[in-house]
Design a protein around this nucleic acid. Sequence first.
DNA 1: CGCGGCTTTGATGTTCATCAAGTAAAGTGG
DNA 2: CCACTTTACTTGATGAACATCAAAGCCGCG
Lengths: 228, 228
Amino acid sequence: MIANCNCEKCEMKDLFFENVGATDIEAMCSNKTETKYKKGSVIVEKGQVIENFIYLKKGLVKLFRISSSGKEQIITIAKPLDFVNLLSVFSDSCYNYSVVSLIDSTTCILDFKQIRDLIKTNGSFSMGLLRKMSTISDKIILQSIEIRQRHLPGRVAFILLYFANEVFYSHEFDLPISRKEIAEFIGMTTENVIRTLSEFRKDKIIKIYGKLIEIIDIKKMEQISLHG
Amino acid sequence: MIANCNCEKCEMKDLFFENVGATDIEAMCSNKTETKYKKGSVIVEKGQVIENFIYLKKGLVKLFRISSSGKEQIITIAKPLDFVNLLSVFSDSCYNYSVVSLIDSTTCILDFKQIRDLIKTNGSFSMGLLRKMSTISDKIILQSIEIRQRHLPGRVAFILLYFANEVFYSHEFDLPISRKEIAEFIGMTTENVIRTLSEFRKDKIIKIYGKLIEIIDIKKMEQISLHG
DNA sequence: CGCGGCTTTGATGTTCATCAAGTAAAGTGG
DNA sequence: CCACTTTACTTGATGAACATCAAAGCCGCG
């Protein structure tokens, strides 16, 4: 039994610990730290030593780095289950990117040593972790390639559809990032992102109320994302 | 002792099997298949079921996919130790990219089931594999971002320096890919790649003799790669 | 209230893709 | 081995896509 631990109700448990026995989970949970972050908080700063195993329980975060020319570049946007620091947690001793929450978020921090022990003793857990890591990396690589191949309107459409289909599950949502951040994600200037959004509005594909976006012509949007 | 197996001399052994006992290695090697590919051969075709664990022993290969507009897109170029199919081997049942050799290459194919068994029984092996996978994914993601942030001259310089510093370890080398393939890698047109190379030649940064490239002004090339 | 950052639009110039046309190299069948 | 075909390479001209610069309105926050 897992005592003194609300991990029982944690929806991550099944996914992350699908192959771990109750005793191990209990040990792990007794050392866990749950932290809440307000929107815009720094969760991880580039250069920090990787000492923990962090995963995102609730919210939305951006992973980014500073390019040689001093601009922020968003590597990816992660939602729960896209474990925040799975990237490079095994390959590096320090973070080479920063993580900031885009909306109020909750992380669960586990002891890295315990995770390493689990890997060494529990083969099924290792296998699951390998699969998880592979999936996340694949997703980021594919996303990066998909974005690269598109022109500006296609890139903006891609991002909007990403939020609609994979984050908010609705055609109407509050953009969790600024126009500037969209630009930093898709590698264009802020002005052109705005211009493209205005075009979409003029073409009656979306409605804009500040940060609130409503996609009214999904078909056309998908078409632009694919062939724009 | 490892009998009937030239794996003894294989320089991969220490890296890949650093934590595996002799008995396990022997079992693994008895089921291995070593295959040689001429330049330009298809090693993996998109859509194939992933049944084996392939790694590149010798040579150079390109991983690519076909974009929705029908163009080839090179995801990355892999050299020995950048295990060919580590990408998505654990996350997918089929390849979602193709692999073709750029120069004469040799792969070593291991039984996937045996690898899975090793992961389950040998924690140190799992840990090593996690590290290896993480490193490779990180590299591809970083490379993709680095390329994306640059303008044309910067991208071409980046590629040339990649070949010089990380593949051939020389300022003079035979380009293993065509101008068209460079374009497919960095996301530009063939014409502009050629134009940029010609510019470099006019500026006395490189010399070009067909496929043979000689970088004569490394300093300037590095500067273009960083700030071009 | 006023400062700073975000947003928006327009004007301008740069970068890059596309089209066209020609040369060189490399493979192919007789 | 040579004529033939195809593919790779190269350069120029043109227009489209995009960045940059500039200016003004908006909004939140101390």
